[in-house]
Amino acid sequence: MKDVALKKYKFSKKVIEKASSEHVKDHGFHGNRDEHSSSKQSTTIIKDIQFDLSYYAKVLIGNQKFNLLLDTGSSNIWVPSKNCTTASCRNHNDYDLNKSPTFKKEGNLWSITYGTGSASGVTGKDNVKIGGFTAKKQIFGLADNVSNDFLNLESDGILGLAFDSLNTMDNQAPTVVSTLINQKTINPLFSFHLGRVSDFDDDSTFTLGGVDKTKFKGEISFNPVVKTPIIDTIAFWLINADDASVNKKRLGFTGKKGLIDTGTSVILMPDDDAKKVHDQIPGSSFDPVNGVYIIPCDTKASVAFIFKGISYPLDPRDLILTPLDGTRCVSNIFPGFNFDGNNDIWLLGTPFLKNVYSVFNVGKRSVGFARNK
C-alpha cells in the first residue's frame, strides 16, 4: 500500500513538472454561482473496494454502464476499450464505440500511471452520466492497454476529481465536474461520505452539486486550497494543516499541508513526521526491513489531524492496515512521503476520510470537513 501511493505521486510529480514548462490552463470557478439550488444536486450510493481501499460509482458513458473509482487525487476519466486485449480489460466492462450513437472520435494519445498500475489509449467524446446529471460531449479515455494491476479491482476504470491542470488528456481537458459546472448543470461542489465495510447499514454516498445532510452533523468548516508546488497553480486538493495530535497531545507541527485523496488507501507522511506520531502511540515500533510501523492490534490511540483549529480524530480501527499475528498489526500511517522536496505535505487517504464528511468546493476552491453522524 505504501509503494502504491508513492508510485502514484511519483507520476503526478512528473505530470506537474511537465505542465510547469508549458501554458497551464486555469479552469477555476470563482464565486457562488448558484451553489444552493436544490435542483442542481444529486446523491448516489457508492460501493466499497476491498475493505475500504477506495470507492466506486455507477457511471453511464453513452449508453454503456461502468463502475468507476472516484479519485480526488487525479483528473483523467477512462474506461477499457473494446479493442483492449490485456487481461485487465477482458474481465471488466469495456466501451464499444459502435454501440453509442452519441460517440465522437478524437483519437489523441494519452497515458497515466497510478499506484495500482497504468493505462493508455486514445481520447473520444461522449455523454457521461453520474447520479442525476449528464456531462455532454465529455472528453474521456478509451484504454487500449490496462496493466494487470487492475485485474482484481471491482472498478472498470477511474473518474478523476482533482483540478483540470492534472488531466493528461488533450492538454488539461476539463474534468467531468468541470464540464458539468461549465454547462451550469450542477452547483460547483461535490462531497463524500465514506463508510466502512464493517458498518453494514452505513451506505457510502457521493453528492454532485451539494451535500448529503443525512450523513453529517453540525457545521462544515472550510479550508482554502493552496497552490501545488512546482506547477505553482491549483492542481490537487491541497490545504494548510495546523497540527496533528495523539491522545489529544498536540505534536507541534508547523507549516504542514494536507493532500486530500479519496483514491489513496493509506496515510503517508515524511519520515520524521511519521516517527513523531508513532512515538506517542503506546507499543509501536518501526520495522526497518519493510519501512512500516507496527502497532498493537487492540490500540486505543486517538490520532487526529487539525485544520483551522478543529481536531478530526481517527477511529482506532482506521489505524490498522493488516494484522501480522494475533497481537501486532501494520499501521495505516506510513513514512517515506516527500512529494515537493520540503517534507511538508501529508497525504491523507481513506483512513482519514472515513472519519469526516468531506466537501470539495470547486467554485470557492476549498475543502470542508464536518462530523459524521
Results as ranks from 00 to 15, higher is better:
residue 107 G to K: 05
residue 225 V to H: 08
residue 366 S to E: 12
residue 227 K to G: 11
residue 232 D to W: 09
residue 212 D to R: 08
residue 129 K to V: 07
residue 242 D to K: 03
residue 335 P to N: 07
residue 263 G to R: 00
residue 12 S to F: 09
residue 145 N to F: 12
residue 185 T to F: 05
residue 329 C to I: 10
residue 349 G to K: 08
residue 170 D to C: 01
residue 81 S to L: 05
residue 263 G to M: 00
residue 46 I to S: 10
residue 338 N to Y: 09
residue 55 Y to V: 09
residue 323 P to M: 04
residue 44 T to P: 04
residue 171 N to I: 02
residue 244 A to W: 00
residue 229 P to L: 05
residue 53 L to F: 11
residue 240 N to I: 00
residue 30 H to S: 15
residue 307 F to L: 08
residue 84 C to E: 06
residue 142 L to T: 04
residue 74 S to R: 09
residue 136 K to P: 01
residue 32 N to W: 12
residue 62 G to T: 07
residue 364 K to W: 08
residue 269 M to N: 04
residue 331 S to Q: 08
residue 161 L to T: 14
residue 298 D to K: 15
residue 51 F to C: 09
residue 286 F to M: 00
residue 343 N to G: 15
residue 299 T to V: 07
residue 290 N to T: 11
residue 53 L to E: 10
residue 60 L to E: 09
residue 159 L to R: 03
residue 313 P to R: 06
residue 166 L to Y: 13
residue 143 A to P: 01
residue 86 T to H: 00
residue 185 T to E: 13
residue 236 F to A: 06
residue 348 L to E: 01
residue 28 G to M: 08
residue 351 P to D: 05
residue 107 G to A: 10
residue 1 M to H: 14
residue 171 N to V: 02
residue 359 V to Q: 09
residue 225 V to G: 05
residue 65 K to Q: 14
residue 87 A to R: 15
residue 206 F to K: 09
residue 197 V to H: 13
residue 285 S to C: 14
residue 225 V to K: 06
residue 131 G to D: 06
residue 236 F to M: 07
residue 347 L to C: 04
residue 146 V to S: 10
residue 149 D to L: 10
residue 187 N to M: 03
residue 79 V to C: 14
residue 52 D to Y: 01
residue 215 K to I: 03
residue 111 S to K: 11
residue 33 R to S: 14
residue 51 F to L: 11
residue 268 L to R: 03
residue 4 V to Q: 12
residue 97 L to N: 13
residue 174 P to G: 12
residue 124 G to E: 03
residue 243 D to F: 02
residue 54 S to F: 07
residue 182 N to G: 05
